[in-house]
Amino acid sequence: MDIRKVKKLIELLEESNCVELEIKEGEESVRISRAGSVAAPMQAVAPVMQAAPVAAPVAISAEEPVAEKKISGHEVKSPMVGTLYHAASPDAAPFVQVGQTVKAGQTLCLVEAMKMFNPIEADTAGVIADILVTDGEPVEYGQTLFVIQK
């Protein structure tokens, strides 16, 4: 489980009202909980456990500034774990490009897991401001794929 994913989970927890979150994926598992949720704002990241041989408990500060520049707007997220494709076939033109105007319901990309294909559609109309995943790249559940500016 990579660090970005753990970070995603922390963000997910922050946004929610949940106190604890546990994710299992094959032999790996991670549990994140808001310990004393009183004072320390979001230092509440409790031990992250990993089944991998190296991992001693790691604490991560959720306050770290995000390194890359972030384009704001409406985020389209992946509803499932899989591989992302920007076109219907390797030879075809991509569904959308940065700067393109899209309608709600328009297909933005495909996510595949084990030959199950899920077309990801724009859930709002607007202009594609950012594409965060390259063709053929693996994506996680809840990962931001596109930013649409209304």
């Binding site: 509803p79 084990m114 030959k115 294909f117």
Partner: peptide, 24 residues
Amino acid sequence: KWPNDVYVGGKKIAGILTEVEGDA
């Protein structure tokens, strides 16, 4: 053949394509 091509005697006999639309 992973994930779901069906083979008989090493030759493909059936293919499956699954498509899904909806919320997470």
